[in-house]
């Protein structure tokens, strides 16, 4: 009797829930279909990346002769409302060990420059460095600072060039964006990017693939994010690769592997203080 009741109850739930579910999927699909390119990119920009995180990662640099060099780092990130603070501490190789990089990535609404510092153990000195050259290589890799810190939503005009394309079994929009005419010079100067095509997963608003045309003639970069999984409720790409090509020939490439990441673990504020960099390097 109980069993029947249970089945009946379950069936009833199914009957009630299935149309609701279908309806919500339809509504969601309709909503997604009605989104403009800018709306989509706004959702990408607003995607939850966690209040704070601690990660152990490896950056693998691959040269044109496929020689691989590995640098391991520990990274800390914390959201502060008006800015995100980020700290990277190199664990290897030996000649980079204990180098520490700190970045304060201010929101576009703050209308102020980002801030960066570098602690070089060889000099025992903390140096303020410019963070506006976002086209520069991030930690010597094919990723630029612009690639890492993400795009500034207000800098670009967006358009959907393909409503649907499958990438690794996931339906994606293909969106192209270029600097707004009034900001073109500034964007080119700071990012070096002329145009970007990006593939955004419709289910989670996640950029899984990008093709980036650089200002330097013939240079195009190809980005891929794979092993995308939900960790502590946050969608995370555990492998990112960037290939730099020139005239359709691969120059070099870099792979960023997240070996271990924890969100919401309670990262202290002290670790992001530039004057604590030397001690942070010694303590890690």
């Amino acid at each position: 009797m109980k069993k029947k009741n249970f089945v009946s109850g379950r069936t009833l739930s199914c009957w009630l829930l299935t149309p609701l579910l279908l309806l919500s999927v339809l509504v969601s699909a309709t909503e997604n279909n009605s989104l403009s390119a800018r709306d989509i990119m706004a959702q990408v920009d607003a995607r939850d990346e966690g209040e704070n995180s601690v990660a152990t990662s490896a950056m693998i640099l691959i040269d044109s002769r496929n020689r691989q060099r590995v640098r391991q780092l520990k990274q800390y990130a914390k959201e502060y409302g008006d800015k995100q603070k980020y700290m990277a501490h190199f664990l290897s190789p030996a000649d980079l060990k204990d180098t520490v990089y700190i970045n304060y990535d201010w929101n576009a609404s703050a209308d102020v420059d980002d801030e960066s510092w570098l602690f070089l153990p060889a000099l025992n000195k903390v140096k303020r460095i410019s963070s506006e050259d976002r086209s520069a290589a991030f930690l010597g890799s094919d990723f630029s600072y612009a690639d890492i810190s993400g795009f500034e939503l207000e800098w670009y005009d967006y358009r959907i060039i393909k409503e649907s394309e499958m990438v690794d079994g996931h339906d994606c929009w293909v969106i192209e964006y270029e600097p707004k005419a009034a900001l073109r010079d500034k964007v080119l100067r700071t990012t070096g990017d002329v145009k970007t095509q990006t593939w955004v997963r419709k289910d989670i608003f996640f950029q899984v693939k990008s093709k980036i045309w650089k200002a330097r003639a013939g240079e195009i970069k190809y980005f891929m994010a794979t092993d995308v999984e939900q960790i502590d409720g946050i969608w995370t790409a555990q492998k990112m690769q960037m290939i730099t090509t020139k005239n359709d020939k691969r120059q070099h490439s870099s792979i960023f592997l997240i070996q271990d990441i924890n969100y919401g673990v309670g990262v202290g504020d002290d670790i992001f203080l530039p004057d604590n960099m030397q001690r942070a390097a010694a303590m890690n």
Partner: peptide, 14 residues
């Protein structure tokens, strides 16, 4: 090909 997955051949990463 530029979107193809690159194999990483590195020991002791863990």
């Amino acid at each position: 090909d530029f979107f193809a997955d690159i194999d990483v051949n590195v020991d002791n990463l863990n």
